[in-house]
Structures are given as C-alpha cells and as structure tokens.
Design a protein around this nucleic acid. Structure first.
Length: 620
DNA sequence: TTAGGGTTAG
C-alpha cells in the first residue's frame, strides 16, 4: 500500500501529442452517418459546384450568393454533423472563383457553434495548406478553438504566426487569448497580459475584455478585486454591462454573500441596466444554497413581472435545490412545469433529480430515471453515473456500483476522481478491505491522479477497519511525497488511534497538529473529547473543552453531549449535572443518545447521591 | 461591413 502510494504521487508524466498529433486526433473520419438534412445540404452543394462559374467581380455569381446564404444559415443554427461541414468545405475548395474569406470564416463559425473545435482547427490547417486567404478574424476564431480545447499554447503559436504574416491582432484576438489563459488556470499570466496591453496601448479595452478579466478574478476567489475592477470601469469610457454585473453577482452568490449580490441587482436597476435570466439564475443559486425560499419566490415573481423567462439553467438550479433538500416531489413537479413551458430537461436537470432520489435511498427510482433518460435520447454523462454509483455505495450495494463503473467505461465515459473515490469509500465502509486495497492499486495503475479526498478515504477506511497503525504509515508516506495533510486528515487519524486504544499516539499526533500551527476545528476537538472520555480520561477531555473556549472555537451541542455521556459512563454525576446546566444555558439540548443514557440511569437502582439529585431534577 | 471574443445549473 505504501509503495503504491509513493508511485502515485511521483508519477506525473504528461503525454503530449503535439500540435500535429492534436490536429490528426481532432480530424474525424469522412465517413458514415446520414440524415435527411445532410442529404439536402449535399445535393444543394453538388448542384452549386456543377453550375457554370462567373468571374465578373461586379456581379456575385448565383452559386456564391446561395453558398453565402447557406453558410449564414449554418453559422446560425449549425450543421447537422461535422462531416457535413467538411463536405461543404471540400466543395468550396473546388469552386471557381474561390469563395471569399468571409465564406470560409462562416464555415468555421458554424463548426464552433457545434463545439467541434478540433474539426475547425483541422479545417483551418487545410485552408493554410491550400493557401486559402485568411485574415485576423480567421486567426481569432482558431485561437478561440484552441482556448476551448485547453491548448492556449497553440493559441500563442498562432499569435506568433499572425505577427509573422503581418496581420495586426485586435482586442478580440487578445480577449480570446486572455480567456484561454483563464480557462487553463493561468490567471496571473492573463492579468499580466491584460495590464501590458493597456500599458503599451496595444488595444482600446472594451467591456468584453474587462468582463473576461473580472471573470478570471471571480474564478480565482478574488471577488472583491472583481468588484473593484467593476467600479474602475465606471470611471472609464466602457461602462459595466449586464454581463459584468452578472459575473460579479454570480461570484458573490457562490461566496454566500447573497445580500451583497442583491445590492448589486438593485444598483443595476437604478442605473437602467436590465438584469437578464443569467443575473436572476445566479442569485437564485445563491439563495438556494442558503435555503432562503421566500427570497427565491420573490425573485421568481420579479422575473415574471419583468417578462424574463426561466431557462434550463434556472430550472436545473431549482430542481437541484429541491432534490438536495429532500423535496423530490417538488423537484419532479418543476420538471413537469419546465416541459409545459417549452423547456426540455437535459442531462443536468435529470441528474439533479436522480441525486435527490439517491439521497433518499430511492434507488429504484434513480435507476428508472436512467432508463427514462435513455428513452428520451438524453445521454447520461459521467456525473450522472457518479451520482448513481454514490447512491448504490451509500446503500452498501457496492457490486452494483462497480457494475455501473464498468458500464460507463464501456459507453466511452471517463470516470473522474470523484467516481473512483466514491467506490473506494463504499468498499471500505462495507468492510471489504482486500477489495478496497485492490481497487486502490487499480486506480494507481490506471494513472488516476489522487486528490486529498482519496487520502482521507484511504486513511478513514484503514482506521474504520482497525488499521490505524497502517494509516499512520500512509500519513508519513504522504508527507514524504510532499502532500500537506490538513486538519481533517489529522482528525481521521486521531479518531482511529483512539478507536484502537492507542491513546499515547493520539496525544502525540495532537501535539504535532499544534506544533504545525494547524487550528483544530469543532470536529477534531469533539473527536478528542470523545476519545479521552472513552478512555476515562475526563480531566483531559475537560482540558480540551477549555482549550476550545480559549481558541474561540466555542463548544457546540455535540461537544456537551459527548462530555456529558463521558461523565455518565465514568459515574461522574456531579460533573454531568453541571455540564447539563451549562449546555441548557447555551441553548443546546441533550441529543437522543444522551437522553436515553440518562433515562436508563434514572431507572437504575444505583444509590449515588448525585444521581438521586439528578433524579429529583429531571424526574420530579 | 453580411465573419471572430465575455456571464448561469448537477
């Protein structure tokens, strides 16, 4: 196990196909599939390419104007298949005179609309090969494709080509690159590039490039800086727009600062900037996270008043919130409602409902929903399977979960680290230790990159199965591989050590936590109190209680209940009585386990004076 | 100037 762990953390080799490999990889085979629309398209183009050519520059040949109309239409609605676009491209190559740069860029746009970014890149490379004229717009489109494919490095290679060919990149070209950097978690580089462009007057910044940077700030957790940039925009010629506000509102909502977000909404209205469905959906999401149902109703009414219709996103947010809150019937009703209002649920909507079923343990319904999705032609994705796998694992049906993992892989879906973590946890919880360790090794062999959650599951699994010693060895391995354990990892281990009766080791680890300057949280403090109580070390448990108060981590209901039960167990009824009074004074209540313990004690025949006093107090 | 860039959901 330890060796396996080391192997995982030291193997970070990345397979890089390079630009050509990437092009080859991205080029689909020019074969198979047909649809009525495609046939019509091809017939039209066939007739276009057969028609006589016209070289009069003052007169657009009929076939070209037809092509332009077709491309315009396709760039609006997209082709049915990428193959269609490629066939159109081949016909265009053979046309005389050659269609214009704009015609070719419209073809690329159509591919981008269909999200066939790698196909668009390969079309571009063919254009270069056949010396088809290109311009800065063509380059910007292709850079955008590279950004979407998370290959901003190729985007920069294209920027070099732009300079080499004497074109001048404009604000759109640079915005695309900035966005590419942001989407590849290179925000600092994006910010630096933006600042340089401004300092050297390379661009006249517009709202879009500002919004891209603001979005980057939000994504990197700098919402307050994003807010400052919004304020800065107000002082410039390009004023913040609905997208600027929506981006910041979305980020504030995610940070649980929904009241600030609502403040911005009011500000927008004051300034005459109309919020749209994205603005409202972001706010609704924030309110859902805080279960502020009344405010959500209010916002939905506001949307109605302003004639802003909910879209798939809005409904999915609402379905998810209801499902997570256990209100699956309401979630089902919302899906019915969205269908009635002409919004078809998609994989996100159904997966959210499925999560609700799984949380309630209604696995039959969750599985039936998977079938419904398939019948409706909605393909379940990795997250759908992960939700279902999680549902089965929580119900200890790990074999079904593993079967689903195989099924998703066969369907060409790539499980994520969350999928693997879920199964690993399921195996440990089902106490199928050998299989868990085997599964873990398989994860490593397949090159799955572990995260801190995997480590927690592994350590928790070992501790849960009475192998705290082994878990400690894994911890040391983790540290030697450069992974910094957090307080949750230490809590798991301290819990495990106490569980195995290794009190001295638990104490040592606790000492290490303090030495490392980590701040224990409620959970870790409560674990320690429980551990000491279990061992009859009430004095040490009480010291932890005092430490909590000193460290501004005030004891909660769990703390008091744990300590009180510890007192009962160790026949320290006086102490229990004082703690009960203190707990009540703080507005906390005895939980089910403490109450039943107290009830049993009061029923007992024990003649302890403190117990008799308690009897008088609780059963007068 | 009929072609290119920015915000939301599980």
């Amino acid at each position: 196990m330890r060796r396996a762990f080391t192997a995982c953390f030291s193997s970070n080799a990345i397979c890089d196909k390079g630009f050509l490999g990437f092009l080859r990889h991205g080029t689909p085979a020019l074969t198979t599939t047909s649809s009525s629309c495609r046939v019509i398209t091809l017939l039209r183009l066939h007739s276009l390419s057969q028609s006589p050519t016209c070289r009069n520059p003052n007169h657009t040949p009929n076939h070209l104007s037809e092509l332009q109309q077709l491309l315009l239409e396709k760039s609006r609605v997209g082709f049915d298949e990428p193959d269609d676009a490629l066939r159109v491209f081949d016909k265009m190559l053979r046309m005389k005179p050659l269609p214009s740069v704009m015609d070719f860029t419209q073809l690329l746009t159509a591919l981008v609309k269909m999200k066939h970014y790698s196909v668009a890149v390969s079309v571009f490379s063919k254009m270069c090969y056949f010396s088809i004229p290109v311009n800065i717009v063509t380059y910007s489109i292709v850079i955008n494709c590279c950004s979407h494919l998370k290959r901003v490095d190729y985007g920069f290679a294209l920027l070099a080509a732009i300079f080499k060919r004497g074109f001048v990149p404009d604000v759109v070209t640079y915005t695309t690159l900035v966005r590419g950097l942001v989407s590849q978690d290179k925000f600092l580089e994006a910010e630096l590039m933006f600042k340089n462009l401004l300092e050297h007057n390379q661009i006249e910044p517009d709202a879009v490039i500002f919004n891209t940077i603001i979005n980057g700030l939000c994504k990197t957790g700098n919402t307050s800086q994003a807010m400052r940039l919004l304020r800065y925009m107000e002082k410039t010629r390009c004023m913040p727009c609905v997208v600027t506000y929506s981006t910041v509102i979305n980020s504030l909502s995610k940070d649980r600062l929904v009241d600030d977000a609502l403040g911005l909404l009011a500000e927008m209205s004051d300034k005459g900037i109309q919020p749209d469905v994205v603005t409202y959906s972001s706010l609704i999401q924030g309110l859902c996270n805080l279960n502020r149902w009344d405010d959500i109703t209010q916002l939905l009414k506001d949307m109605d008043r302003h004639k802003i219709s909910s879209n798939k996103h809005t409904y999915s947010i609402l379905v998810d919130a209801h499902a997570k809150d256990g209100k699956v019937r309401d979630a089902e009703y919302l899906i019915e409602l969205m269908i009635r209002r002409g919004q078809n649920p998609n994989v996100v909507t159904y997966s959210a409902l499925m999560d609700g079923y799984c949380l309630r343990g209604e696995l039959d319904k969750a599985f039936a929903l998977l079938r419904t999705m398939r019948n409706e032609g909605i393909l379940p994705n990795t997250q759908t399977y992960t939700i279902l796998i999680n549902g089965y694992c929580k119900k200890m049906k790990v074999d079904t979960a593993i079967h689903l993992l195989k099924e998703m892989t066969l369907k060409g879906l790539t499980p994520t680290i969350e999928t693997y973590n879920t199964i690993l946890d399921g195996l440990f919880r089902a106490r199928r230790l050998d299989e868990a360790q085997k599964f873990y090794r398989k994860m490593l062999n397949q090159g799955v990159k572990l995260d801190i959650v995997t480590c927690r599951i592994l350590l928790h699994g070992l501790c849960w199965n009475g192998l705290a010693g082994e878990a400690m060895s894994v911890l040391h391995e983790m540290e030697s591989c450069g992974l910094v354990p957090d307080i949750r990892i230490y809590s798991i281990l301290i819990h495990g050590l106490f569980k195995d009766g290794k009190v001295d080791e638990a104490r040592n680890l606790l000492h290490n936590v303090r030495l490392k300057g980590l701040h224990p949280d409620f959970i870790s403090y409560n674990i320690m109190i429980q551990g000491f109580c279990q061992e009859g070390l009430l004095e040490e448990a009480y010291k932890i209680l005092l430490e909590m108060e000193e460290n501004n981590c005030l004891p909660n209901e769990v703390t008091y209940n744990t300590l009180i039960r510890g007192c009962f167990k160790n026949k320290m009824y006086d102490g229990a009585c004082v703690l009960i009074d203190e707990m009540c004074a703080h507005g906390f209540k005895a939980d089910a386990s403490t109450t039943s313990m107290l009830f049993d004690l009061l029923q007992s025949k024990e003649q302890d004076p403190a117990l008799l006093a308690m009897q008088k107090k609780f059963m007068p």
